[in-house]
Amino acid sequence: MPKMELYQVPAGSLDAWIAEHLQPSEEFQLQVKDTVRRICDFLKETCFDDIKVFKTVKGGSAGKGTALKNNSDADLVLFLSCFSSYRDQMENRAAVLDTVKQKLNRCRQTIDFSVDVEVSQPKEKGTCPRSLSITIQSKKRWESIEVDVLPAYDALGQVTPGSKPSPQVYEDLIQAGAGPGEFCTSFTELQRDFVKRRPAKLKNLLRLVKHWYKETTSGLPPKYALELLTIYAWETGTKGTENFSTSEGFRTVMELLCQYQELCVYWTEFYDFQSSVIGTHVKRLLREPCPVILDPADPTGILGQGKSWDLLAREAAVCRDQLCCRNGLAPIRCWDVQVPTPRRAPSHPHL
């Protein structure tokens, strides 16, 4: 679907357009849910001989409730007994993936889809694959979903909604000295729940932003960074209300993207500055050149550094002049969102 179709949608018709063009069909969502359940059952009950699967967690857009019609993704994270540390995960991940691939190929006939299985290629030479990619294609519709199976170290253990993880979890993560977001899979539950609990209308705004993003130039900042920026705009611009204008929200996100060189966004829901190890690490990241958007579930996850934000800002500037962001000749009103900067960080509840 060309992005120009979105640009020709009147601002007042965005909600109906999202429902018709971006929301996945209920039938396909049920098929995906059933197929992912089958894969989970296989991985927990059949796949491993001497490895225990502590739990499986569905993340990605399917897990968060923000999947797009015709194309969505799910992360199926396996928390395994063979990983007793972050280092174990790094060293043994490739062997685990190889086992999963071999076993899954043998049981494909039990899954009610045409399923393609291939190990994803590492992004950098010399690195091991991080996931097994499974394409689930509907037989009745032009809808498909990418399921990435990711083995992970169970750093969090039992997750209790509404409570902070032990600071020791994050201290160990930081002291492991890995790259940004290297072990983010260990925090999939927190990442998922951070989005999943949001109101349905905000999830539709997230769908709209993701659709716009997918139609822009490749090599841009990660999609997750835009999801977080959209949630930030909604939290601060509407005080978290469920009754808001989709067009106002969309134009606010475009406006923030145009001001990317001033952005510094983070939350203190799962980690804060009380621990000297965590506090020192996070403060160092906040001094990085803007834009800085920190993963609320993973304090090592600084998103979008060195990416082509200027290209995204250029497209956002084009977008805010289109019908979808205008009320006749006048621009749609933006929410009152103060652009967060490191200088204002101490006084802001989310910064």
Rank of each mutant, 00 (worst) to 15 (best):
P2N: 12
L6A: 10
L6H: 06
G12E: 15
L14E: 08
A19H: 12
E20L: 12
H21T: 09
H21I: 00
F28E: 03
L30G: 03
L30R: 15
Q31S: 08
Q31C: 10
D34C: 09
D34L: 15
T35C: 15
V36Y: 12
I39H: 05
F48M: 07
D50F: 02
I51T: 11
K52D: 12
K55P: 04
K58Y: 00
K58N: 08
K58Q: 14
G65A: 05
S72H: 14
D73A: 08
D73N: 02
L76W: 10
F83D: 05
S85P: 04
Y86V: 00
M90E: 13
E91V: 07
A94D: 04
L97D: 01
L97N: 06
L104C: 07
L104Q: 09
L104P: 07
C107S: 13
Q109T: 13
V117D: 07
C128W: 03
Q137A: 11
K139S: 10
K140E: 14
D148W: 03
K164A: 15
P165A: 10
P167V: 09
L173G: 06
A176G: 04
F183Q: 01
Q191Y: 00
D193N: 15
R197E: 15
L208A: 09
V209F: 08
K210T: 12
T216G: 13
K223R: 07
A225P: 02
L228M: 10
T230G: 01
T230P: 01
I231A: 04
Y232A: 01
Y232V: 01
T238R: 05
T238V: 10
T241S: 14
N243Y: 01
N243D: 15
N243Q: 13
F244P: 04
F244Q: 08
T252M: 02
M254I: 05
Q259P: 00
E262P: 00
Q274Y: 06
S275F: 10
H281A: 13
V282C: 06
V282F: 05
L285W: 01
L286E: 07
E288M: 13
P291N: 02
P291Q: 03
I293S: 03
L294R: 07
P299C: 09
G304N: 03
L312V: 15
A313D: 03
A317S: 14
V318E: 12
R326M: 15
G328E: 09
A330F: 12
I332F: 00
T341G: 05
P349H: 09
P349L: 04
